[in-house]
Design a protein around this nucleic acid. Structure first.
Lengths: 205, 205
DNA sequence: CTTAGACCTAAGCAACCGCTTAGTATGGAG
DNA sequence: CTCCATACTAAGCGGTTGCTTAGGTCTAAG
C-alpha cells in the first residue's frame, strides 16, 4: 500500500480499460482540468496541452468535448458503484460501516474524478445523462437495501429509511466538494469518521 | 405562511437591499441562470434576456459578470449565516437542532441562491473570494461552537468535534445539490429530518 | 524501396464570448 | 421651452471557442 494510491491500489486502474494510451492520457488530462476549473471553463486547448498534444488530437479519439466528459462520468460512476457494493461483511452494521468507509474514502482519494462525477451531470447530453442516471439509481438502491436489511434484522432504529439513505449518500458525496489533499485528514481517516457517524444516524446498537 | 415563501417570508427580502429595482431584477435573473446552467455556461445575453433588458444593460449596474456573481455570493452567504445564528433556543440540543433545521431548510427553500453560493466559489476573483471565505469561516465557527458547548455541558457525546462540525455542515450544504421543488419532501420536512439525524450524530440524550 | 494505415499537427473557420461605444428616450429643474 | 442627468438600446469590436481540414510522420508488412 503506497501513500499516493492508498487502499485503492488495485482500483488505481480506474482508466486501465481505456485504450490506446493516447486516449487514456487525454481522459486523465480532461478529468484533471474539469475537476479544477469545471467543464464549461475548460477548453479543448487546455486538455490537449495537459496531455502534451495538439488541440486537434482530442478529436482523433473522441467525437466531442462532451464525450470526454461522458467517459469520465460513466467510468467514475461504475467504479464508485463497485467500491460501494464490493464489501464482504455480512452483518448489517458491519456491512453498512464498511460500505460507507469505502465509498467516502473513495470520494476523497479520487476527489478529482469524483468532482466531475458529482458536479458536471448537467453538462451531459440527454442520452448520456440517461445512462449515468441509471448507474446512480443502482448506487442509491444499494445503500437503501443495506439500511432496510438492518432495520429488518432489528439492528437499526430508522424512522425514515429513504430519508436516511438520502443523508448517508449526501454525506459521502459531499466529500468530493470539500476534500483537499493538503488537509490534515487522510481518506482512510475520513472513511472511519463517516462510518461511525452513519452508524449513529441509523441507531446501530 | 405561504407555501411558496415558506417560513422564510421575512427573509424573502434576500435581495431587498439591492437598488435600483433594475439592478435587483438583473441580480435575480443572474442567480436563476447561474443556478441552472452554472456560472461559466451562462452568458451575459442569457442574464439580460431573463431580466427583460438588452445585454448592455448589465454594465449600467455592474462592472462585470463576475461582480454579479460576487453580489449573489456575498448576500447569500450573509443570509445563510443570519439564518444559522438567528435561533433563540438556549439548551445545547434544542439550539443545535433549531440551527440545523433552519440552515438545512434554507438550502432547500433557496436552493437557487444556495447552489450559486456553494458551487461557484472558484469563479470569484481572489479579492472577492477572500471576502466570502471570511463569511464561511464564521459559519463554520458558529456550528463548531454549538457542538462544543453541548460537549462541555455533557449533553453531547462527540469524540471528534471538528469532524462532527464538518459532517453537519456538509450534510446541510449538500441539500442545495440534490433538492428539487418537485420532490416529495418540503423544505420544512427536510429541516426536521436533518435536525433529528444531527442529534443522533452528536449523541444527544 | 514502396505502400498502407494509424496517429498526430498546423492552420484556420464560423460562431459566440464579455464588454464598449455611440446614441436615444424620459422626466424633473429652471 | 432648454438643459441635464439617468437609464436604456443598437451595433459591433477584439478575442476565444469547439471543431474541421489538409497534410505530415511514423511503423511495419510486402
Amino acid at each position: 500500500m503506497t501513500t499516493t494510491s492508498g487502499e485503492f491500489a488495485l482500483l488505481d486502474e480506474t482508466w486501465s480499460s481505456v485504450t490506446p494510451p493516447a486516449a487514456r492520457r487525454m481522459l486523465i488530462a480532461a478529468a484533471a482540468a474539469f475537476s479544477v476549473r469545471g467543464y464549461h471553463a475548460t477548453t479543448t486547448r487546455d486538455i490537449a496541452a495537459q496531455a502534451g498534444m495538439s488541440p486537434a488530437a482530442v478529436y482523433i479519439h473522441y467525437r466531442s468535448k462532451e464525450e470526454l466528459l461522458f467517459q469520465i462520468s460513466r467510468i467514475g460512476h461504475a467504479t464508485s458503484l463497485a467500491v460501494l457494493t464490493g464489501v464482504s461483511e455480512v452483518d448489517p452494521a458491519g456491512r453498512l460501516a464498511a460500505a460507507v468507509r469505502a465509498f467516502a474514502s473513495w470520494h476523497a482519494e479520487y476527489h478529482t474524478t469524483a468532482r466531475v462525477v458529482q458536479y458536471e451531470l448537467s453538462a451531459l447530453t440527454p442520452e448520456h445523462l440517461t445512462e449515468v442516471v441509471e448507474l446512480r439509481r443502482r448506487i442509491e438502491a444499494a445503500v437503501r437495501d443495506m439500511i432496510s436489511d438492518g432495520v429488518a434484522a432489528g439492528a437499526f432504529d430508522v424512522p425514515d429509511v429513504r430519508g436516511a439513505t438520502l443523508a448517508v449518500l449526501s454525506l459521502c458525496i459531499d466529500v468530493a466538494r470539500w476534500y483537499r489533499p493538503t488537509g490534515h485528514r487522510t481518506p482512510a481517516e475520513i472513511g472511519d469518521l463517516y462510518a461511525d457517524l452513519v452508524l449513529r444516524m441509523v441507531g446501530a446498537a
